[in-house]
Simulated scan of single mutants.
Amino acid sequence: MINKQLINEEVQEYITQNLYSDLSKLRFRKSPFNNISSLELVQQIQGKKIAQKKLPFLYNNNRIIYPPHLNLEQASSQSTALYKKKIITGKNGIDLTGGTGIDCYFISENATNFFYVEPNYELLEIVKHNFFSLKKRDIHFINKTAEEFISENTQSFDFIYLDPSRRDVNKNKKIEIMDLSPNILDLQNQLFKFTSKIFIKLSPLLDLQKVIDQLPISNIYIVSVKNETKELVLELRSEKLEYLNNPYIHCVNLETKQPDFHFNWRDEKLSDTPSYSLPKSYLYQPNSSLLKSGAFKLIGNKFKLEKLHSNTHIYTSEKKIEDFPGRILSIIDKNFNPKKTNNKKFNIISKNYPIKPEEIKKKYNLIEGGDIYLIFTRSLEGNVCILAESI
Rank of each mutant, 00 (worst) to 15 (best):
P56T: 12
F192I: 01
D179T: 01
L134W: 09
D103G: 06
A295D: 00
L124K: 11
L270D: 05
N311F: 15
N246L: 07
R327Y: 03
N120Q: 09
P354M: 10
S76R: 04
F192L: 02
N61L: 12
P325K: 12
L162I: 14
K53D: 10
P67K: 08
V169D: 11
L308T: 04
L215H: 04
K135R: 11
K351L: 04
G370P: 07
E40Q: 14
S277V: 02
Y243Q: 07
N365K: 12
S350R: 05
E368C: 01
K144Q: 12
P216S: 02
Y83L: 01
E118N: 02
E368Y: 06
E318V: 00
K230Y: 13
S37R: 06
N347W: 00
K25I: 14
Y83N: 07
D138R: 00
N35D: 14
N342R: 10
I321R: 11
D158Y: 12
A75V: 07
K339S: 15
K319D: 12
Y364V: 05
K91T: 03
Y353V: 04
K171G: 00
V169A: 07
N35P: 00
F376V: 11
K351T: 08
A146I: 05
S218F: 01
L123I: 12
K344E: 09
S24Q: 14
S24T: 15
T89K: 13
D179G: 02
I367H: 06
K361W: 06
Y14P: 01
N170Y: 15
F194M: 04
N343S: 07
I177K: 00
N8I: 08
I299C: 03
G99K: 08
N71Y: 15
Y14D: 08
Q190R: 12
L180M: 10
P204T: 00
I198E: 00
H313I: 06
K135L: 13
Y284I: 02
L82I: 04
K302Y: 15
I142T: 08
K257D: 15
N3G: 05
T256K: 01
Q209I: 00
Q52V: 03
S38M: 05
I217V: 02
P354A: 09
Y14W: 15
Q285E: 14
D213G: 01
I2T: 03
R27V: 07
L366V: 05
L202K: 00
S181T: 10
A146W: 03
S37V: 08
Q155M: 13
K362I: 03
L270E: 13
Y248A: 01
Y14G: 13
R63K: 15
F106K: 04
K193F: 04
S224E: 12
V11P: 06
M178D: 13
K85H: 15
N92T: 13
T341K: 02
D103R: 03
H313M: 08
Y59E: 14
